[in-house]
Design a protein around this nucleic acid. Structure first.
Lengths: 186, 186
DNA sequence: TAGCACATGTAATAAGTTACATGATTTT
DNA sequence: AAAATCATGTAACTTATTACATGTGCTA
């Protein structure tokens, strides 16, 4: 009924999702992101605090004043029913992915303007990063599978981790393919 | 020598790369992007025209006044030596990739707040998109391999296309894995 | 003559990061 | 006593998209 001026700010939805597990403060949201969705999502304090304020104004969350570990200031935000509904609606909407800018591919596309070995190094560096990522994802997978056995969220959390794994595996193969091409370019 | 206030604006570098193949107008740059790096890079007119102006101010390019197909206005920009050098330097610098926001994974991460079938549909849609992408990339690969046989840029252009293919293949496998998980979740 | 492709640019808006400003509490 | 962590928030800046404003020339 209220005039919605909302654009397509997924920041709200990300925070809605995080708050759906129980009330959190802005500071906790930031930390929680790093521990959970940090591999494919990020928010800065400059976004979090104003967004929290907006969410309260729109009736999606309410503040729960609360003292932290000591007498420290701490405002916890709890989802309202409106907030929970909004999350539910958003979840069923198709996910849109924008064309992400890929700087490595941009450089590679202009590769013939540079030294072959410099371009090769770019790919080698990428491969090393991907290998490290893969290892990290495998560790996360094993850890959460053990820690959250039986939890209804686990299958979904595993899917997100395995996405990272699948992407890394695919791109490591691509790196090897490129490295083969560089060998032929001698 | 001049005071460089430049941040990390890869927009300039993308345009430097495009101009390295010969002078282009702003309009042509936009079109060219769609025909070449459009699958992993994009620029809007709102970026292109002001950036072109900045590049001239920084001595990276110069204007070549020119009438277009008819008496239409058209300014073509040609790289200067400084521009070519700047491109060369940038190409050897390591590519940094930011954590891209992945809306599909964000939804999936909160999947247990929604209906299993809605989440399944999200993955099915993604798989369909990836399959279409894969087909498209294969067509591009075949086309450029035939069209630019022997061209020194070809190995690099193929690398960028094959990146898309490798990613799609990896993620299609991931989709199938997810679909298997959904079956088990019944 | 209407519509589309060509062509350039600006203004408004959106979305986000980084740096700044402030202060309490806990740990070393 | 210093440093790290907890905690909230704002201001300045950056980057990019979309809509607007304007006009030419070709084609159906």
């Amino acid at each position: 009924m209220s005039a919605e001026k909302s654009g397509k700010t997924t920041t709200v939805e990300a925070m809605l999702g995080l708050l759906s597990g129980g009330p959190l403060s802005g500071y906790e949201i930031k930390k929680r992101i790093g521990e959970s969705i940090g591999n494919f999502w990020s928010e800065s304090f400059g976004q979090i605090y104003p967004t929290l304020k907006r969410m309260v104004a729109e009736g999606l969350a309410k503040v729960e004043d609360d003292q932290g570990t000591g007498g420290r200031e701490r405002k916890r935000y709890r989802l309202t029913d409106a907030g929970r509904n909004r999350l539910g609606e958003w979840l069923t909407l198709p996910a849109m992915d924008q064309v992400p800018r890929n700087e490595l591919l941009l450089k590679l596309f202009f590769g013939n303007r540079a030294e072959r070995d410099d371009m090769k190094k770019l790919v080698e560096t990428k491969k090393a990063e991907l290998s490290a990522d893969l290892k990290r994802f495998e560790a996360i997978e094993a850890r959460i599978a053990a820690t959250y056995a039986g939890h209804p969220g686990l299958p979904y959390w595993l899917m997100t981790v395995r996405y990272g794994k699948a992407e890394a595996v695919g791109l490591i193969a691509w790196c090897d393919d490129c490295l083969g091409t560089f060998k032929e370019m001698l």
